[in-house]
């Protein structure tokens, strides 16, 4: 009986504590860090088309596609495209990229009105905010 009452007291003590719930869409997440690994973003101007990111990608979410964009260094004109539906945000592509042109941004709100999860280079090079504006 003593133990039961002790448990009841512990529980009732919590009545006077503040709820820890964060009402996410209205309130911002208080601990959201700068290091957060969100959607992959590509800098088209510095990409040299070395395909390392496509090789290291564990899920083959990152794959190379042909894309007409002239930046002087990428003479084969192949750029990474990322299937966001398969991406696990492991950060290996960011780690291996020799020019730092592919990196993980802070964005994580990836809901769109279309179902196209395969981000081709032009889409990949824009931030989510820009894409939303574009929609």
């Amino acid at each position: 009986m003593k133990g039961i009452i002790k448990g009841l007291i512990t529980v009732t003590k919590h009545m006077f504590r503040k709820p820890v719930t964060v009402q996410y869409p209205e309130e911002p997440i208080p601990w959201h860090t700068k290091r957060f690994r969100g959607r992959v973003i590509l800098n088209l101007d510095s990409c040299i088309g070395c395909t390392l990111c496509a090789q290291i990608c564990p899920n083959h979410a990152d794959h190379m596609v042909h894309y007409e964009y002239e930046n002087g260094k990428n003479w084969r004109k192949i750029y990474p495209a990322v299937d966001i539906g398969v991406c696990t945000y492991c950060g290996l592509c960011q780690e291996i990229c020799p020019t730092g042109s592919i990196r993980l941004s802070n964005e994580f709100e990836l809901a769109h009105f279309d179902r196209d999860m395969d981000y081709l280079p032009d889409r990949l090079s824009r931030t989510e905010t820009e894409l939303k504006y574009h929609d």
């Binding site: 009732t12 919590h14 503040k18 709820p19 820890v20």
Partner: peptide
């Protein structure tokens, strides 16, 4: 119940 469990 939510109150005792620090929820809303």
């Amino acid at each position: 119940m939510a109150d005792l469990q620090q929820r809303i």
